[in-house]
Amino acid sequence: MEFHCGIDVGKHKLQACLIWIKGKRRNKSVANTPAGRRTLYQWLERQLQGRLDTLQAILEPTAHYHEALAEELVELGVRVATPNPKQVKKFAEGLGFESKADRQDAFVLARMGESRELAAYTPPAPEVKALRALLARLEAVEKDAQRESNRLEHALTAQAPQDVIDSIRNSLAFLEAERRRLERMIDEHIDRHPPLKGDRELLESIRGISAKSSREMLSIIHRHPFDRAKQVASYVGVHPKVFESGTSKELPPCMSKMGSGRVRAKLYMAAVSAIQHNPDVRAFYQRLRSRGKAKMAALGAAMRKLVHICFGVIKNQTPYTPQIA
């Protein structure tokens, strides 16, 4: 018998709900600290009489606060699942829950694990985890630089004192230097690890995939044990969302947007470039346009095709070769 434990993860607290025999629930709340997590593991062992291998723990990914918990549970022999937050939200609505509360959210996660097959979580390799952290830091610096650039534009328009303008420019210069430094660190980190280096070269053999988009796709594909290209497309949110019920049938399919908006933004720019320089993507885009597809719908499909190509070159360990001359 497999038991299911939903764990609502917060910055400071973990709320667990263990679905027991005949649907009975047992709840436990602990601090999200090393000591608190040890208390949770000991409680689970007592409930299951030491049989942690019979447990599936379902965690909703919450920034980075769930990562230590997920990795420690896997080490203890627990099967861990980390479903997409949007899927969790829709499942909760299906159960009739519209408000959010820690105990309720933990129960929803447990019920989700009980009622459907969820993909098992696999902890990323240390070098992949480090790459993800470096990319997250680069994103933060780029956002800070954009904010300072907006402030500079406002200061110039408002004719702010020169000291204010100089301060903003100094901050922008620092952030630009830090951005370049982080990009060098990321490239050096990838070069130090042959699997990452080789796969980046494969990704950059695809016309339209730049250094920036290759880093993102490299991190995503190495971080999750995808079996098919459709799974990658679903993860980044570029797969089509089809309406097939009631009057919704009249609505055209649209992009699901279930993944990271930042990754999709880079894929958007990659698709724009690929339509110009990649013969396969260009032919695909033009074929959709000739059938009456709107420009943005065809561009979204081109993004999805690029994701499929990215997965294909890494899975087959073969550089990209255009099928159309």
Rank of each mutant, 00 (worst) to 15 (best):
Pro123Ser: 04
Val30Phe: 09
Thr157Phe: 07
Met185Tyr: 06
Leu152Tyr: 06
Arg79Gly: 06
Tyr121Phe: 14
Arg181Gln: 07
Ser214Gln: 13
Arg132Ser: 15
Ile324Ser: 04
Lys305Phe: 04
Lys293Ser: 15
Asp191Glu: 11
Arg291Lys: 15
Glu139Tyr: 12
Val74Gln: 13
His224Cys: 08
Phe107Lys: 01
Lys257Cys: 08
Ile21Ser: 15
Lys22His: 13
Gln87Val: 04
Lys100Arg: 00
Glu188Asn: 11
Glu117Ile: 09
Ala283Lys: 14
Gly10Leu: 01
Arg184His: 06
Ala302His: 12
Lys249Leu: 14
Met1Tyr: 11
Gly94Leu: 01
Ser149Tyr: 03
Glu201Gly: 09
Lys230Met: 04
Ser29Arg: 07
Asn170Thr: 14
Val80Met: 06
Ala211Pro: 10
Glu93Met: 00
Arg200Met: 12
Asp163Glu: 12
Lys197Met: 11
Tyr285Asn: 13
Pro61Glu: 04
Arg289Gly: 14
Lys89Cys: 00
Phe107Gly: 02
Ile58Arg: 04
Asp166Asn: 14
Thr54Lys: 14
Arg38Ala: 07
Val30Asp: 01
Ser256Asp: 08
His66Gly: 09
Lys13His: 04
Thr82His: 08
Ala106Ile: 01
Ser219Trp: 14
Gly10Ser: 06
Glu148Asn: 11
Arg46Val: 10
Glu204Cys: 12
Lys129Gly: 09
Trp20Asn: 14
Gln323Phe: 02
Asp144Tyr: 08
Gln323Gly: 08
Phe174Gln: 04
Ser171Gly: 14
Leu172Arg: 15
Gln15Trp: 00
Phe243Ala: 06
Gln286Lys: 14
Ser214Leu: 12
Ser219Asn: 15
Asp105Cys: 00
Arg116Val: 03
